[in-house]
Amino acid sequence: MSKRLRVGIVGGNAQRGWARDAHIPALKHLKDDFELEAVSARTQTIADEAQAIFGAKRAYADSIALAQDPNIDIVSVTVKVPEHRAVVLAALNAGKHVYCEWPLGRDLAESKEMTSAIGPNSQVMIGLQGLSAPAIRQAAALVASGSLGSLKLMRVFSATAGWGAEASPNHAYLQDKRNGATLETITGGHTLAAMEALAGAYVEVDARNTTLRKHVRIQGSADVVQRSCADHMLVTGQHASGCVSTLEVAGGVIDRSFSLELVGENGWLKISGGHPGGYQVGLLNLETSFPSEPLTPLVATGLDGPPLNVAEHYMRFAKDIRSGAQSVPDFDVAMRLTQLLDTIDLAATKGQRHRL
């Protein structure tokens, strides 16, 4: 067995958060390949609690210090998007491998700065874990093999329970577009990444981004915040393959499931999933109009929900680090996706079609 990769989690909190819900259970399930070396949080008290409950060796109140820890191989950045830049740059400057949650930065300038900082000894992965889901990977392989023939049309509906009429106190910052973590970037970005993985890069887009609920009540209080980001997206476009696509992204939806249908000259494939956190969070199903191989087994059988595809992502990253390959989505993919989202926003703002 290869030496286990030592992981430091930036954003360790035993009471809440994506690290607790997704990263920690994924790493524990993959204990033959990874070990949790350290955690950091905004206070030493929170970090110490996370260390005790998660089983880490060390706890930091300073995330930069964790990023510079010589005993860490991979720095996993799971804090809020505005905090990504400083930690990622520190980790890359220290020669670490980096797993950064999506979105990479608040804007394209931050994403470019972080991408430019990658040194020859560091490998990076962006947290678009839906791209590691077996259903997405097998669908992409079927497209690449020519099983569908020439691609014609893709129809996608992508929903999330987030960005509804209410938000938890911890999600109040998601309503402010300036923070870079919005319905467009998170639910929209994850979905657009899958669409490009199947139908190729967008070459032209038209869009309408709408804020249907302009005021959001904060749960457990009388506070109301203004929403400056969209909570509904409509995107039409054409891909490099010639395929045309339609996408609806809907916030505040819990009674409709994710659905993707891709039609080619030789048949169709359909991907479906029902997790309220978005398509990238849970198990996905793949159907085809023609005989196809069963889905590749999950690397972490027995997991469900948030850790499921994160575990798939970690295992692919480990293989890349050990082999020197680059099969996982990296920061270049993150920059491409950020540029796509900027173009969609521009098309929606200007009310006209734009080319990429």
Results as ranks from 00 to 15, higher is better:
Lys319Arg: 08
Met125Gly: 02
His313Tyr: 03
Ala199Arg: 03
Gly149Val: 10
Trp163Ala: 09
Glu113Cys: 06
Gln123Tyr: 11
His190Trp: 10
Ala141Thr: 11
Gly146Ala: 13
Met114Ile: 06
Phe258Met: 03
Gly11His: 06
Leu269Gly: 00
Ser221Cys: 13
Ala117Ser: 12
Ala347Tyr: 04
Gly8Asp: 04
Gly237Asp: 01
Gly277Lys: 09
Cys100Pro: 00
Ala197Ser: 09
Glu166Tyr: 13
Ser2Val: 14
Arg6Gln: 10
Arg208Ser: 12
Ala300Ser: 12
Lys350Trp: 03
Trp163Gln: 05
Phe317His: 00
Val225Ser: 02
Glu49Gly: 10
Val79Met: 08
Glu196Asp: 01
Asp345Glu: 14
Pro103Asn: 06
Val7Asn: 01
Lys31Met: 07
Asp73Lys: 05
Met315Lys: 09
Ile9Asp: 04
Leu286Gly: 02
Ile24Gly: 05
Ser40Met: 07
Thr296His: 07
Gln129Arg: 10
Pro82Tyr: 11
Pro291Glu: 12
Arg16Cys: 08
Pro120Asn: 14
Ala133Met: 03
Met195Tyr: 04
Glu261Ser: 13
Ala144Asp: 14
Ile118Asp: 07
Leu148Ser: 01
Pro103Asp: 08
Trp18Gly: 11
Gly164Val: 13
Thr160Trp: 07
Arg316Ile: 06
Ala348Arg: 04
His84Ile: 08
Leu27Thr: 11
Gln175Tyr: 02
Ala207Asp: 09
Ser323Leu: 07
Ala167Ser: 14
Val87Lys: 01
Asn13Gly: 05
Ala67Gly: 01
Leu247Phe: 12
Arg353Tyr: 04
Ala334Ile: 02
Ala165Asn: 11
Gln129Gly: 01
Ala222Asp: 15
Gly164Pro: 12
Leu5Ile: 13
Gln326Lys: 15
Ser122Arg: 07
Leu346Ile: 10
Gly180Ala: 04
Ala94Cys: 05
Leu27Asn: 06
Arg4Met: 09
Arg316Asp: 05
Ser257Asn: 12
Pro297Gln: 10
His275Phe: 10
Lys350Leu: 13
Thr236Ala: 13
Arg316Asn: 10
Gly12Gln: 05
Leu346Gly: 07
Ala161Ile: 13
Gln51Glu: 14
Thr43Arg: 05
Glu265Ser: 15
Gln44Thr: 06
Arg355Met: 10
Val203Ser: 05
Lys177Gln: 10
Gln352Lys: 11
Asn285Val: 13
Ala109Gln: 15
Gly302Arg: 08
Leu308Trp: 01
Arg208Leu: 12
His171Trp: 10
Pro291Cys: 11
Val224Ala: 10
Asp62Arg: 07
Gly17Asn: 09
Phe331Ala: 00
Phe157Lys: 05
Ile271Asp: 03
Gly273Val: 09
Arg256Val: 11
Ser63His: 06
Pro294Lys: 11
Ala194Thr: 04
Glu265Gln: 14
Ala94Glu: 05
Ser116Trp: 01
Ser327Pro: 00
Ala94Tyr: 03
Val224Met: 08
Gly237Thr: 02
Gly351Gln: 12
Asn209Cys: 09
His215Leu: 14
